[in-house]
Design a binder for these strands. Structure first.
Lengths: 244, 244
DNA sequence: CTAAATAGCGTAGCAGGTACGCAGTACACG
DNA sequence: CGTGTACTGCGTACCTGCTACGCTATTTAG
């Protein structure tokens, strides 16, 4: 029927093999991979067209034959960072499945800490995103939820996971930048907080919740799992309510 | 006891009024406000030191007497965007309180669509962040949760809300950039998706969930409330479980 | 009155994204 | 087998943006 929009075709490397002209010495995948390696090693800020080209032994401008702009490269990176998801174990209930899935996302994205810095530019369209989307939907297959309900649940879950990743990564970066700010966090707050204006925060401080923040462990999944299980509790209620 | 770290003092404008030298013609607040107006009007990308200075009738470098770097300015903006939260209605239960709070955050941040683009550089320390933190904790005051439990619940909620804001804002931006990509979303997926590799996505497409995406309404709180209520359901279970 | 501290700001350096156009290359077609 | 055509790589150049540095003017402590 209708043709695919040219943007989409070009972007995800579906272009038909045209004949004439020199063989490309580079592919979009090469560029994406090089950019990802760079970002993994030195952070997203180190990813400039020049650095990526250097890493590939090409000139800066050569990249623009394969990638429309730096923004497009970022989008490609963010999709490619999501490698193929591990297949769900067979015959598990939806809750085990989604927990497995979420932990999987977490460990995958922990290896690419720049992931959350890249702005989302549209609905999930790349192959990586779609594969993960499918996996999560698959976990809900036997619940009896409507397709729309499944989409809602999965969207909410993605939002939570992405938010959590972003938070933990940003905090970790802030911590290595300036550990003092974290160690003294409780102490600073105690001096700054006006107990009359912020009574609830004052109570938290009195309880000593922020005193032992000295330890900051990036791989601490405590908080992640806590929020995740709360959300899944909600999903359980929703399923029960909906599928009488 | 111990002094506050100099960074903190300078950053949040707590410096003691020293005497010598010319009167400043600018304050940190002026700069922050000008930057926010600019970002509201033209997006975060338009916020350059030069543009902000121009708006204030000063030279670019004058700003650096009041702000250590552009990053610091961004942090200040992100805190100042959170104006004083509306006080919670009295005598409402925690769930009504948190829903009220979340809707409040949502409407406040909708007015500053650049908010989610600013990287979080540490635990919440600015006056705006703390005020909102306090309000959310206050809503949980009567639940009997431990202080630590309250902090966990509020953290998870903030994560969710921030994630949702980011998603909705980025999507809205993508939509105005390129509405076609959204209108054709369902159609494109139907052509791209390999039904064998992505069976669950295929089922969603068959059910027509993505067909009517033509309408994209940024102020559509449907999805936001859906996920929020799921999370709050989880919190309700947690409270019941914990506080026997 | 003098010196110290501080504000504003001009200059300049450096980095990064990318428009443009040239030159070389490989295949299609005659 | 030649010739044109479409395509690749890339050098150059421009523009924007952040910010280090140092000069000058201004205020006030002593």
């Amino acid at each position: 029927m209708s043709e695919l929009p040219a943007d989409v075709v070009l972007m995800w490397g579906l272009r038909d093999a045209s004949r004439r002209g020199p063989k490309p010495s580079l592919t979009t995948e090469d560029i994406t991979r090089a950019a990802i390696e760079l970002a993994d090693a030195e952070g997203l800020a180190a990813v400039s067209m020049a650095r990526v080209a250097e890493r590939l032994g090409n000139s800066t401008m050569a990249l623009y034959r394969h990638v429309k702009s730096k923004d497009e490269l970022l989008t490609l990176m963010s999709d490619a960072a999501l490698e193929e998801p591990s297949p769900l174990p067979d015959g598990v209930d939806w809750r085990t499945g989604l927990t497995f899935w979420a932990d999987n996302v977490l460990t995958t994205l922990r290896q690419h800490r720049w992931y959350a810095e890249i702005p989302i530019s549209g609905p999930p369209a790349g192959p990586g995103n779609l594969a993960w989307f499918d996996a999560a939907l698959g976990a809900l297959a036997d619940t009896g939820l409507s397709e729309e309900g499944k989409v809602g649940v999965v969207m909410g879950l993605m939002t939570y996971v992405h938010g959590q990743i972003r938070l933990s990564v940003d905090l970790a970066a802030g911590f290595t930048d300036n550990p003092a700010a974290f160690n003294q966090y409780g102490a600073v707050l105690k001096q700054v907080v006006d107990r009359r204006r912020l009574p609830a925060v004052a109570r938290v401080l009195d309880a000593g919740v922020f005193d032992p923040v000295v330890t900051f462990d990036e791989s601490d999944d405590q908080d992640f799992d806590f929020g995740l299980q709360l959300y899944l509790d909600g999903v359980a209620g929703f399923i029960e309510r909906t599928c009488s």
